[in-house]
Design a protein around this nucleic acid. Structure first.
Lengths: 165, 165
DNA sequence: GTTAGTGCAAACCTTTTGCAGCTCT
DNA sequence: AGAGCTGCAAAAGGTTTGCACTAAC
């Protein structure tokens, strides 16, 4: 959804498209990445140094409640911040590397099928589904194995020392 | 996994099974429900009034990092608290009613299939998958429709008043 | 006797709230 | 005028940290 479309959505709800909201929406759309409130705030201040952190939070809440952006946790990869993305794309899962923080998106039939099954089996009217996976990306998997090996080595040394004494 | 099994897991990592941890683990297992830190703390204090809130947090973190319990957000239904459940059961999704807060669990093939696809397509080693859906349960769906109707009615009245003036 | 774990107080970080002033319409 | 919106300061909510003391191994 373009900023235009979002503006229309806001208007329908009797809400206004202010200078601040325009800045925040543009940043959210440009950045393909997943921004958290603080990051978004810093970017926004580059365009308008007076823009307040509170406005960022209020805007994000508004957009979230209007269903215009989705809120993610990314498996709490570093801290409790929430990440936001505009709701333009197809439903997808987020896969986070717990070592390097890389985020990949996963599209696929199982997601849609799950939504349908939840609706049919549980009688829920599903408004949002959030699927997040945590693990190690192909790159970090190797490095991780090496790290574990070294940790085990360290433990062996420590144990040996203890036994000797 | 029984408390026994968890105790063994802790021991393997050179960790200790203290009175406090035993209490917390038992509570987590007994309660089929999804407890948050505060709730767990209150229950724990009934058994040991001196047990500190900080210990609850530290224990939960420990168990989470050891992969012995899973951490949920339940779509941030009321606040930012995290909910915990022991990792005994099969992989499942949590479906939260955004009106009454009821939580249902969903088991099914799509979940397992999704995990496999993420591993195959993205080359990730998946350690945890968390799927949460938000919506309205069959009961609240009806009530919700009624509420929306009343809200719309209210808006009509307000608009009429404004136009008249 | 070591090392891990606990309790207490205080800090921390993210997010929300109250309120006066501003700005669209 | 009247509603929505912003900025500022202050509070809230959930969680973590530093440190001295205690308990498990």
């Amino acid at each position: 959804m373009k900023t235009r479309g979002i503006e229309a959505s806001l208007r329908e709800q009797g809400l206004r498209m202010t200078r601040q909201r325009k800045i925040l929406l543009e940043l959210l759309e440009q950045s393909g990445a997943h921004l958290d409130a603080e990051h978004l705030y810093r970017l926004a201040r580059e365009r308008d140094p007076k823009l307040n952190r509170v406005t960022v939070y209020r805007t994000l809440k508004l957009l979230k409640d209007s269903g215009l952006v989705d809120e993610l946790d990314l498996m709490h990869w570093e801290g409790e911040a929430h990440y936001y993305e505009t709701r333009m794309k197809q439903e997808h899962a987020h896969v986070v590397c717990l070592r390097c923080g890389k985020v990949e998106e996963f599209y696929g039939e199982p997601l849609r099928r799950m939504r349908r099954q939840i609706e049919n089996h549980l009688g829920f009217q599903v408004l949002m589904v959030r699927t997040e996976a945590g693990g190690y990306c192909s790159h970090c998997r190797v490095l991780r194995a090496r790290e574990m090996e070294q940790a085990a080595e360290g433990a062996r040394v420590r144990n040996a020392r203890r036994t000797k004494r």
